[in-house]
Amino acid sequence: MNPTAAIHVAKKQLGLDEDTYRDLLGRVTGKRSAKDMSHAERQAVLDEMRRHGFKAGSNGSRKRLEGRFAKKLQALWIAGWNLGVVRDRDDAALIAFVRRQTHIDHVRFLVDAAEARKAVEAIKAWLAREAGVDWGEGTDKPAWLREPGAQIAMAQWTILANAGVVDRSFYAFRAFVEERAFRPLGQMKAGEWRGIMNTLGERVRKVR
């Protein structure tokens, strides 16, 4: 794969929106378009994207399940994998879980919001109970910590701290995120937590 194509695969894999993607290019090379870069500049961009979690050889994203509520369910299932709670990340395991909760054979047949809520809330309750995820959205929390990705990352950090792998302090967590993020903690966008969760997930699965 040529570097330009690899950059676009990495953009998709990391879940970068257009503004964040352009900001990254500009920060690394001073240019906001990959087509204007030299080969060395494109390689520098790829190196930066790898540092933030891009895995070469991936097709850029996990195949999406069909269905009105499939995207949310799949995201929660992968969050469970990254928290060391879900042992089988395959979609077949998610489908089986949804079947047990709703008695509906496949997520593509899950069209009723009330039925979908049963499965969503069951996964969230599982992750809260087994991994300590705090799903609260109260105004006492900073805005960034009301994002599900941030809530999952905080739970991952606590798991690692309890295992003696990382410093428990908030300052250590913030430093970790900001070293790998494309912007300060308070300016993180929802999609940008994906790379953080995946990076922490590799470490969490080793200790759980």
Rank of each mutant, 00 (worst) to 15 (best):
R51Y: 09
A92V: 10
E137Y: 02
I123M: 08
L83W: 00
K12S: 13
N162F: 01
G30P: 08
H103A: 15
L200H: 07
T4R: 14
S33Q: 11
K31D: 08
I7L: 08
G53V: 06
F182S: 07
E48G: 04
G136I: 03
L24A: 05
A125S: 14
K55A: 10
N82T: 00
L200T: 08
A131G: 01
G149A: 11
V120K: 08
F176N: 13
K55P: 02
R208H: 01
Y21R: 08
G191K: 06
Q74W: 10
A114C: 03
R208M: 03
R205F: 01
A40W: 04
V177E: 05
A163P: 03
D23H: 13
Q74K: 10
D90G: 14
G80T: 00
T139C: 03
D90M: 06
V166G: 10
G138R: 07
A6R: 15
L24N: 01
R42W: 05
R50P: 04
A119E: 11
R168W: 00
R180Q: 12
G26Y: 10
L76Y: 00
K11V: 04
E147Y: 05
K35D: 12
D17T: 04
A10V: 09
M154Y: 13
H106A: 13
H52R: 15
E137M: 08
E178S: 10
Y171N: 11
L110R: 11
K12H: 07
F54T: 02
A40D: 15
R203W: 12
R99F: 14
Y171L: 07
A70L: 09
G138C: 07
R203Y: 05
M197T: 11
A116P: 07
R108V: 09
V207P: 02
H39L: 14
G53T: 05
L16T: 06
G191F: 04
D88E: 02
A5I: 03
K55G: 03
L16F: 12
A34D: 08
A116M: 10
D17I: 03
D105A: 15
F97L: 03
A10W: 06
Y21N: 06
N59S: 12
V107G: 06
G15I: 02
V120H: 04
V28W: 06
A128C: 00
W135N: 03
D140V: 04
G57C: 11
Y171Q: 13
T158N: 13
E115H: 09
V133P: 01
K189A: 09
E202R: 14
D105G: 08
V85W: 00
H39R: 12
F176R: 10
A114Q: 13
G26M: 12
K63R: 14
A161D: 09
R64H: 10
V28R: 04
A175E: 13
R50C: 12
F176Y: 15
S61I: 04
E18V: 08
K118R: 15
Y21L: 10
Q13I: 03
R51H: 03
S38L: 09
A153P: 07
A113Y: 07
R117T: 13
D134S: 04
L24T: 11
G201I: 04
S61K: 12
G195P: 05
A6W: 01
A10G: 13
A128E: 09
Q13G: 09
I196Y: 04
F69T: 06
V45F: 02
A114I: 09
E115Q: 15
G201F: 02
K124M: 15
A155E: 00
M197R: 15
K11L: 11
E137G: 12
R42P: 01
